[in-house]
Design a protein around this nucleic acid. Sequence first.
DNA 1: ATCATAAAATGACTGCCGGTCATTTCATGA
DNA 2: TCATGAAATGACCGGCAGTCATTTTATGAT
Lengths: 210, 210
Amino acid sequence: MGIPERKEREKERRRQEIIDAAEKVFFRQGFDRASMDQVAEEAELSKGTLYLYFKSKEDLHWAIAERGMQILKESIRQSVVGTKTGAEKLMAIGLCFIGFSEKYRDYFLSLLFFEGKNLKKLNLSRDQIYEAFHGDSPIMILQQTIEEGMSDGSIRTGLPAASLTHTLWAQTLGVLQVIQNKKEVFDLFGIDRKSLILSHIEILKNGLIQ
Amino acid sequence: MGIPERKEREKERRRQEIIDAAEKVFFRQGFDRASMDQVAEEAELSKGTLYLYFKSKEDLHWAIAERGMQILKESIRQSVVGTKTGAEKLMAIGLCFIGFSEKYRDYFLSLLFFEGKNLKKLNLSRDQIYEAFHGDSPIMILQQTIEEGMSDGSIRTGLPAASLTHTLWAQTLGVLQVIQNKKEVFDLFGIDRKSLILSHIEILKNGLIQ
DNA sequence: ATCATAAAATGACTGCCGGTCATTTCATGA
DNA sequence: TCATGAAATGACCGGCAGTCATTTTATGAT
């Protein structure tokens, strides 16, 4: 009885097609300017159909951000091969994250979008929250790395690993966010964006690593 | 001939009254949910009048954020009295900023709102950009402090003061943003929000200050 | 007082958009 | 060929940012 399975696959495929279309429209126009009618046209579906697969425009945007998360996670996984200490791993992850923000700028902006939203106002499903903050999410990989570094002595102890993890993540996100959003200011001030990243790394190095 | 002057004052007062009304509505409902009709009703004016004083809803929101900036600036100014070294000043400013984010939560959220927006898409006037990033803005006070600390030897040199300033600002903002937006996650993980700030300070201390 | 003029204020109106739902189309198995 | 439920449709709704022709008000001149 393969028909239910085929239906299931087709449903999932349609879902992905809608996300594909939404990506094109959202990435081209920005989330605010883009309309669901445009997404529907790009997907060659009626608007009503979109709402059979996603409960809101924001929910559809979240699906895009989840793709970004997947890419980031995979990149991080690959970035740590060949590193030895936790500190080395940490540096690799950081550089990987920075690279991601440049190479996959659009996905990164989607992540930033949700980072700037109050979680409570987002009313996500349990699954969605779990997916984003537990298990094998980038932030959890980071925490494991920090714990590893504390064990092998390459990372300063004395602070709870969990707190340190979220702080580190937040700091880095803050720097990357500013770089994305305030380009014009830096051009005006004659500040090289690379030097912001350099400063960031320098601060972390001497602050985190013994 | 005092009439033009009086008119000017009344115009400015009306402007402030509109901002007052907008604050009430925006702070109560959040910027997205609040409508210009509600602001008009709160101000006891017609909606059309609002648009004689502000060119868009966002522009009105910006005016609120500017009030926040003023408060922050004044707080910072007061926080550094009695400090000696640049490093001490820096710590005072940081704690002041954190205090501001708690005491004036609504204003702080307005600042965050614009921090999360792309500057290019904001089409602000030259005056508005100048006001926010030049002169005696918080960020410039920070930069002067860092330069002072580099001179008196209390802050590590080797990085351009301007880059360091913006990096520091961005990191701190990132941490405060996450604390505001992801409360539920931290409750879930059993992470105290204070400990994030502690981690942040600890990282900066050992990374910035000799 | 009266009137002309310009500034200030009004609110009905427009266009757009997220989201809904009664109706239609389609695939499947009997 | 037909009955059934799933999938898709698109006309429609309510709400909102922003506009503009019209009205109201303040002022200075006559």
